[in-house]
Amino acid sequence: MRKFIIDTDTASDDVIAIITALREPSIEVLALTVVAGNVGLEQSIQNALTAIKVADTYQPAVYGGMSKPLFRNLFTAADVHGEDGLGNMFLPKSNIPIESEHAMDALIRLIEEHPYEIELITLGPLTNIAMAALKAPETMNKLKSITLMAGTGLGPGNTTETAEFNVYVDAEALSIVLGLDVPKLFVGWDVIEKRAFITEDDLAYLENSDSPIAKFAVRCTKSLHDFCKGLGLNGFELADPTAMICAIWPEVMTNCIEAHATVETKKEENYGQIFLDQESATPNSTTCIDLDGELLKTYLFNTLLMKENK
C-alpha cells in the first residue's frame, strides 16, 4: 500500500483533496501536517479534522505546524474560501484530537520510520516542508517523491500576474524545497485552469445525488463559487484535488516536461514566479502541462459519490 503524508493549509478544495485520498483503498495517509495559508493555522487544523470526519474512513494523525511564512507576513485567501475556509459554514469545533508534536518534527520522524516510502503531497505554502528540510536535510531526501500544488506551469498566476497563491505566500520556502534531491512533480495553475474547471452542471449533478460527501463538497465551496461568479465565471477551478488525483492516478496526466525550476524571492514585482529552464541546467522537477480533464472528473466524482475507482 502506498504511503502519503498530506501537508495542507486546509480550505474547501484542500478538504476535497484530503477526502479523495482518505477514500482511496490503495493509499494509506499516515498524517496530515497543517500550515497557515488559505486561513490561519488554528482554522486550518479544524478544517483538516472536518475532512477526516466527512471522509468517514479512518483517522490519520494531525499535526499543527507553522503559523506564518519564513520571512513575510501571512497572506490568506479568506475572500476566496470564506472566513472559515469552508464557505462560511462555521462548523462546531471538532472533538477529534490533534497531536502535540510539531508538524516539522513529525515529518522528520515519519520519514525516518519509512525511508524512501513516503509520497508527500503539498497543498499549501511550503513552510512546514522548508523547516523540516533546514533541520534534517538528509532525512527529507529520503522521501519517495513530492507532488506540489504550486506554481503556474506555463501560464499566468492566480494571485499576481506571475505567481500562484501557494508560492506567493512563501516563495523562500519553495526555494529551500527545490534544493531537495527528491523527485518533484508540479501541478500548476495553468493546467488546473484549463482542465479542472467545475461547471454549474457538475455542481447540480453532485448536489442532486444521494451522497452526503458530494453535497458537502458543493456546500463547502460556496464562497469559492461566489468569488468566481464575481469574476464572470460559471463555475470554479478545483486546484488541490487536481494535484491529489495526479498523485494517486498519474494516468490522468497526458503531458509533462522536465526542467530546472527556480523561484523569485528578491524582486517584489514578480515575487513567487517560478522559472523553468529546460536547456541550460540539470532538471530538478517535472511539471504537468496537460491532463485528461474528463478522466480527472470521473475519478473525483466517483470519490465524492462514494463509488469505486478502477
Rank of each mutant, 00 (worst) to 15 (best):
K215R: 07
I257C: 09
E258A: 15
I111G: 03
F275Q: 10
I5K: 02
V80S: 01
N208Y: 09
K184Q: 12
G65L: 10
N309V: 00
T152F: 06
L174W: 11
R23T: 00
H225A: 09
Y299F: 03
I108S: 06
V62Q: 05
L206E: 06
T76K: 11
A48Q: 07
M104I: 11
P60W: 03
T265S: 09
S100F: 09
L276W: 10
I18M: 13
A163W: 05
T50W: 04
S12C: 08
E172Y: 15
A130I: 00
A173R: 07
D210G: 08
R195E: 10
A17L: 08
V177I: 08
E138L: 15
L91N: 04
G153R: 08
E237D: 13
D14I: 05
T127A: 10
A171Q: 09
D14P: 07
V177W: 11
P125M: 15
K135M: 15
L154W: 14
N302P: 01
T127S: 15
Q43P: 15
W189D: 05
F301Q: 01
P183L: 00
L203E: 04
D13H: 14
L123F: 10
L107R: 04
G151L: 03
A21T: 04
V218Y: 09
T10K: 13
S280D: 02
F216P: 05
T303P: 14
G82V: 00
E161N: 03
H102A: 08
T127E: 11
A36E: 09
T199G: 12
N158P: 06
E117N: 14
M89K: 04
D292F: 06
F197Q: 05
T199K: 10
E237A: 15
N284T: 00
S209C: 09
D292T: 03
I257L: 12
W249R: 13
A77H: 12
V54R: 03
V39M: 12
G232P: 00
T298R: 06
L180H: 02
L120R: 06
I19L: 12
D202F: 02
I6N: 07
E164P: 15
T76C: 14
M140Y: 09
F301E: 02
M104K: 15
R2Q: 07
P156W: 03
A204Q: 12
P25A: 00
E207R: 08
K144P: 03
I274V: 13
L91M: 05
L276M: 10
K3I: 00
Y168T: 07
L224I: 04
R195Q: 11
I5A: 04
L231K: 13
G87I: 02
T199H: 12
A31I: 02
I108T: 01
L32Q: 11
F216M: 09
R109V: 06
T152A: 07
T262S: 12
I45E: 02
T199R: 11
K267S: 14
Q273F: 06
A51R: 00
K68I: 07
T199Q: 13
L30A: 02
V34C: 15
R219A: 04
L206G: 06
T265L: 05
Q278A: 04
N158R: 08
A204T: 06
Q43I: 15
A171W: 12
T122A: 15
I257R: 09
